[in-house]
Structure formats: C-alpha cells, structure tokens
Design a protein around this nucleic acid. Sequence first.
DNA 1: AATAAAAAGATCAAAAATAGTCAAAGAAAA
DNA 2: TTTTCTTTGACTATTTTTGATCTTTTTATT
Lengths: 155, 155
Amino acid sequence: MSTLANKIERYIKEMMAAAEKNCLELKRKDLAEVFSCVPSQINYVLETRFRDEQGYHVVSRRGAGGYFQIIRLEVADNKEMKNLIAAVSETEMDFKKAEGFLGRLLEEAVINRNEYMLIMSMINRESLSSAAETEDRVRAAMMKNVLITLLRADY
Amino acid sequence: MSTLANKIERYIKEMMAAAEKNCLELKRKDLAEVFSCVPSQINYVLETRFRDEQGYHVVSRRGAGGYFQIIRLEVADNKEMKNLIAAVSETEMDFKKAEGFLGRLLEEAVINRNEYMLIMSMINRESLSSAAETEDRVRAAMMKNVLITLLRADY
DNA sequence: AATAAAAAGATCAAAAATAGTCAAAGAAAA
DNA sequence: TTTTCTTTGACTATTTTTGATCTTTTTATT
C-alpha cells in the first residue's frame, strides 16, 4: 500500500520516538538490508523527508565504520527559533520547502492539524497560481506572517 | 442502460457509504482495471461528478505509490453552500470583502479566533503585495480553498 | 611512510510506476 | 441534424526505485 520510502520514514521516526533521543545513528547499508533495497534508497528518504526545514539534520561519515546520524531539531531551542525566523524571512519559498516547514510545526505541535490544513490550502500552488512568477515571493510573505501571528503573545 | 461513468460514480459513492468514512482513497489504475476502462475515464468521472460545488473534494498524488482521495464536504443538500462555493470559485475578492466574509465565519463560530487571525494575516494586502495586479484573484483562490477546507468532513 | 585494497557513504541519471491533460472519435439526447 | 455527453488514447508530469560510478575513510601491505 504505502511506498517503501514511507515505510523507511516511519521506521526511522519510530526508532527515534522509542529511543526518546533526538539523535539516532544508523548504518546505511544495514538499513538498506532491513528493507531489502539499494542503499541509495536511504538517501532518497533522507533527502525527501529529513531536511533541515522539516526539522531534522543529517550528518554522515564515509569509509570503513561509516554511518549517518539523524538529529531532530527542537523548536523550543532558542537557536532553532532563530533559524526558523531566518528561514521565513527569506524572500522566496517554494511549495516543497513551505510544506516541510509546516510539517515540522505540526510535528512539534506548534500548530494543530486543522491549522496545518488551512495554511496548506492557502499556500499551495493552486491558490497562488494567479501570482505567476511571483508565487514564491507571495508564499514567503505569507509564511512570515503566519509565524509572526503564531508568536503573538495573544494567539 | 446506465453509462460506465454512472456505474463508476455509483461504485465510489457506495464505497464511501459502506465504509462510513468521509474520505476514500483509491488508485486510479486499479479502479480503471475494475471497470476495464482507460484510466482517464476515472478523471472524467471525478471532473463531472465529484467537483467541489457538488460536495466532494479530490486530491491526488502522482508517481510510484500514487493515489487519489475523495473527501466528502459537509454541504449535504445545502444548495446555498454549494452556490457559495461556486460563487467564491470565480470571483476576485478585495481585502474588505474577504474580511467581512471571515468576520461572519467567526461570528458563526465556523472558525475560532486563532484561525481568524491566521487567515487574516495571510490574505492581507501586505502578504499579497508581490502579487501586484493579481492580488484579488489570488485572494479569491485562497478564500475558496479556505472554505473547502473548513467544509471537509474530516476537518 | 607510502601505497594499495577494502569498506563504507554520496551522487546522478535512467527506469519504473503512477496520475493528469487534452483533443478526437463515438454515442446519446434534443 | 445539431448539440451535448462519454469514451479512448497519445502525450505530459510527478514520485519512487534502482544501479553504475565517484568520493572518503580506514586497514593492510611493503
């Protein structure tokens, strides 16, 4: 039913939740073996589901004894808050990036599912199609205002 | 002598009723196989019988593992709501008008105060300034999608 | 110490698996 | 007969999966 990539994503997130750590170290080859797939499939999952704007940072080492680490970035962290603000202050934001960013806010419970759906419906490509070549600029402005609103003391 | 399109429509509606779910997920290819027709026939059915103003919203994903979802909207036989969707679907909407519209939704408790603030921050003139002369068209598209989202039976 | 071999992981593009679009052909209704 | 609705298929777009090739790091050999 679900794709292999989805299964690997779920597996990694469950591992992290179970370990109650925000850092998980794995071997690419082993993980690929668990799912009987080519190792580069793991890279695909990391690139599409564990990007910085999605709230995860990945580091790795090659060579014998190589591995990769997935580090969950917590919004509560002061430094992360700055990163977030920097991210939304960018003047352009494509849909993929905004989606990752909102997914993260949802995972961190900064927004609830309904708010996630609402915001997504407003920033999707269809909503902004009339904006033509300014689509990503409009989306960036919207995302910035979303964050400002969420941070308002009286929200 | 019902058409193929009618049969597919009935099949989908029966599936939804039977599952007592507000949301049904199917694979276009599989469904086409069930009815021994070309996949694009499924699109025809969705476009002619499951449009927003008919009380259903469809989302889909392409690619390996692709699918489409049919989501029931809580407009039931509310003709007025369907008309409202149709109306919002075509119009341009300036900020004042959108503000009035959202004010009513707030008063009628369709949205809460936080959702109101969030939506307002995204449709205000500043957010849409980059859209230039298409501002009102973008706002209308956003408002339509807000309405669809609020009406989703699974919201 | 220098070099070669082995053991990882990264990259990138091709192939596979879906879904969407659009226009033409066919069928049914007016 | 004209118009509208349905069916089909060729072409396009998107996402995932796979594999060949490249890079980095460690380990073994000389």
